[in-house]
Design a binder for these strands. Structure first.
Length: 246
DNA sequence: CGCCAGGTGGGAT
DNA sequence: ATCCCACATGGC
């Protein structure tokens, strides 16, 4: 995958994979088998050799909500607190007072709203029986949940349930903008369609692609771009050797 | 200090 | 449909 000039997003994938290597998202604190803290990264978990437990699925959904407009660093601390207090299950989470839950996720910001979102999501998963049978909810059902929008719904579907839906986030939008493939007003669904029409519809591939975009977003494609050494310099409007064709 | 980080819902235009 | 805003912490 990667060298079809008609499909620029295949080439982008190949370039990012070559530059950063296999990512293997989603980062799961419960799979690192240790106590504490490791500076940059928890081990990645979701790859084709390992399927997820109900508890891991729930942790992913919680992380997807907590990371709304928030750095993963801050989310990770909150997840650690939740784990230490044994609140990383829908039942346990619903059993504590809202104020206590909010305090636990304080570091992730918007903690009152996020506490409410976590409670609603917990009820949703319990009542739908989604975690037990690993039977994914529909996208539409997820979107009916207060606090779950397009990106969060797709993240949960893709990373917690292995449904092949492409996740579009701020990094994705920014990258496509700089590559001249979208602009600030391109709707979520259009960007998603762009990827899904070009990239073979496989959950592993979508998961890896999104992870690579996030890595690229952190290393180079920030709001203020760091074009030095950027693997996508060629073909990017911010790069020195911009050329629309290549 | 100010800006930024893997958004979302509610309200006004 | 499309803007505008509140929501909030921690790192640089």
């Amino acid at each position: 995958m990667g060298d079809n000039p008609e499909r620029p997003l295949r080439r982008v994938y190949a370039t990012l994979e070559a530059a950063y290597g296999f990512q293997g998202w989603w980062p799961l604190i419960s799979r690192c088998g240790h106590t504490g803290f490791d500076g940059e990264g928890y081990r990645l978990a979701h790859n084709r050799h390992s399927s997820l437990s109900a508890s891991e699925r729930f942790e992913i959904a919680v992380g997807a909500i907590l990371t709304q407009n928030t750095s993963w660093q801050n989310v990770r601390r909150a997840l650690e607190v939740l784990r230490r207090r044994e609140l990383l299950s829908p039942d346990a989470l619903l059993a504590v007072p809202s104020e206590e839950l909010a305090a636990a996720v304080r570091s992730s910001g918007y903690y009152n709203e996020k506490a409410k979102k976590l409670r609603l999501a917990s009820e949703f998963f319990l009542e739908g029986g989604y975690l037990a049978g690993a039977r994914p909810p529909t996208r539409q059902r997820l979107l009916e949940l207060w606090g779950v929008g397009d990106e969060t719904a797709d993240s949960i579907l893709l990373y917690a349930f292995g449904v092949a839906t492409f996740v579009v986030d701020a990094y994705t939008r920014r990258l496509l903008g700089r590559l001249g493939l979208a602009d600030a007003r391109t709707p979520y669904a259009s960007i998603q369609r762009l990827f899904e029409s070009e990239v073979p519809r496989e959950a592993e591939l979508y998961g890896e692609y999104h992870a690579l975009i996030v890595e690229h977003g952190k290393r180079h494609c920030r709001k203020r771009p760091l074009c030095d050494g950027c693997p996508l310099r060629r073909g990017c409007r911010f790069g020195k050797d911009y050329s629309p064709e290549s």
